[in-house]
Amino acid sequence: MPELTDGCVKPAGGPALPGGEPAAPGLAGSILQEVNKVLARVGKEAIDFEASAFIAGEGFKTVKLSDYKGKWIILCFYPGDFTFV
């Protein structure tokens, strides 16, 4: 059976927490419950992560923050699609 590329559920790694390997899918949650703290600080290295994405013209793709290393990056969090502001 051919592998589904865009299935209903497609885990992505989430944040790569300090102390080693990028968090494996399914593992990030359990590690995070122990850590569960803010790691982002100005002047400090950004925390890498992996997330699934929609990219106009390309479709669905899994991207890592570190894919963009070497360029200036703007990371914008917002409360949700279809919100008002």
Binding site: A12, G14, P15, L17, A28, G29, L32, V35, N36, K37, V38, L39, A40, I47, F49, A51, S52, A53, F54, I55, K61, V63, L75, F77
Partner: peptide, 14 residues
């Protein structure tokens, strides 16, 4: 790219 942070794991560390 519009990324999905389901569960807020990335938002938590940020």
């Amino acid at each position: 790219p519009m990324l999905s942070d389901g569960g807020g794991k990335i938002g938590t560390v940020y």
